[in-house]
Design a protein around this nucleic acid. Structure first.
Lengths: 93, 93
DNA sequence: AAGATATATTGATATATTTCGATATATCAA
DNA sequence: TTGATATATCGAAATATATCAATATATCTT
């Protein structure tokens, strides 16, 4: 089982890059997008955006599911809530 | 004026290191501590801990005030709330 | 089957971060 | 004033991260 520190650190790391936050906010605004959409938002190369999406997915902040040759990504709100809750609680007690 | 992205990124960066989260949680638990106390918690060199505290202070997460030769640090709950609120809102709309 | 499109992986480079020892500064105590 | 204690800063080394071009893989279209 993972400590709350480690969990906070993993999510915070994912949120510690401008591009990733931008991608996340864009997805949140639109509901769901494809990786191609994210490339347009980020204005960076396809491999770079692919990498950032992977970081967000690994952190649990994004859910990705394949749909033909596309990958549809959306925000995992539960994980996001868990994170804000964990930060609030652990830093206030 | 700073974008919400930049604000999130700055705080998230501060929270993206195990040592810093540990220090923050320890301070939250105890109310307030000195830098020396933080060194004991982190088990790292004094300059390293000093650096981490600086990062947390610069991000606004800690408030530091000098008291003789000590520096008393405590959590800035307002900034922390602001952060969790910002993350919640910006990633859900 | 062949070409086109969407995404992932690899390998390299540039930049940022973490960490330390050495040293500086400020304050207290004798 | 001198020595001790608390914290900050500097410079360097090791590690991590962001980024890209090239290439691989998977799926669609014709």
């Amino acid at each position: 089982m993972k400590s709350s520190e480690d969990h906070i650190v993993k999510i915070a790391k994912a949120l510690s890059d401008r591009t990733r936050v931008r991608i996340l906010q864009d997805i949140a605004k639109r509901g769901s997008v494809t990786c191609g959409d994210a490339i347009n938002v980020a204005c960076l190369s396809q491999p770079t955006v692919s990498h950032h999406i992977k970081v967000l997915v690994d952190a649990g902040l994004l859910i990705a599911e394949k749909d033909g040759r596309h990958v549809i990504i959306k925000v995992n709100k539960e994980v996001l809530d868990e994170f804000t809750e964990l930060v609030s609680v652990s830093a206030k007690r």
